[in-house]
Simulated assay, not measured.
Amino acid sequence: MSQVFRVERTKNFTVMSNHHFKNKKLSLKAKGLLSLMLSLPDDWNYNMKGLASLSRDGIDSVRSAIKELEHHGYVERHRIRYCDGCYGDTEYIVREVPSGKGNE
């Protein structure tokens, strides 16, 4: 006997590419984190502590998922360098489809 799952849609939903869901090289943790990141507003501050606060996973778990997403080209990270040469915040570029830089 087969099981049938039905999804009730509401007004609060996110539309995103299915690419990462079908990528067998990504762990479920990485797929979930990327889905969460894609659902956040454009101006949201992506930092490890902030991402960890959105689930019960800790910062180490978020960090390892980010590294996996970076490895596969879904996330790109840059340290911002100020005029005086000091490093500042980290800028994240989150992609629905990986860049050619990852090891896809």
Rank of each mutant, 00 (worst) to 15 (best):
F5V: 13
F5E: 12
F5W: 02
F5G: 06
F5H: 08
R6M: 10
R6I: 09
R6D: 07
R6Y: 02
V7C: 07
E8S: 15
R9I: 10
R9A: 12
R9D: 07
K11Y: 05
K11A: 09
N12P: 02
F13K: 15
V15T: 15
M16E: 12
M16P: 00
S17F: 05
S17Y: 03
S17G: 05
N18T: 12
H19C: 11
H19W: 09
H19P: 00
H20M: 14
F21D: 10
N23I: 06
N23T: 07
N23C: 13
N23L: 15
K24I: 12
K24R: 14
K24A: 14
K25D: 12
K25N: 11
K25W: 05
L26P: 00
L26C: 03
L26Y: 01
L26D: 01
S27P: 00
S27L: 11
L28D: 13
L28V: 05
K29D: 11
A30Y: 05
A30K: 07
L34N: 01
S35R: 06
S35T: 14
S35K: 05
L36V: 06
M37L: 09
L38V: 03
S39P: 05
S39M: 05
S39W: 01
L40K: 04
L40I: 01
P41I: 10
P41T: 06
P41C: 11
D42R: 12
W44F: 15
W44M: 09
N45E: 15
Y46S: 02
Y46F: 09
Y46H: 08
M48Y: 13
M48N: 14
M48D: 09
K49T: 14
K49R: 15
G50T: 06
G50K: 14
L51R: 04
L51H: 01
A52M: 07
A52K: 07
L54G: 02
L54W: 02
R56V: 08
R56Y: 07
D57R: 12
D57V: 06
G58K: 14
G58V: 02
G58Q: 09
D60S: 14
D60H: 09
S61R: 11
S61T: 13
S61V: 08
S61M: 07
V62G: 03
V62T: 06
V62M: 13
V62F: 02
V62S: 04
R63I: 02
S64T: 11
I66H: 01
E68C: 04
L69G: 03
L69E: 06
E70S: 07
E70M: 09
E70Q: 12
E70F: 00
E70H: 00
E70R: 08
H72M: 09
H72G: 00
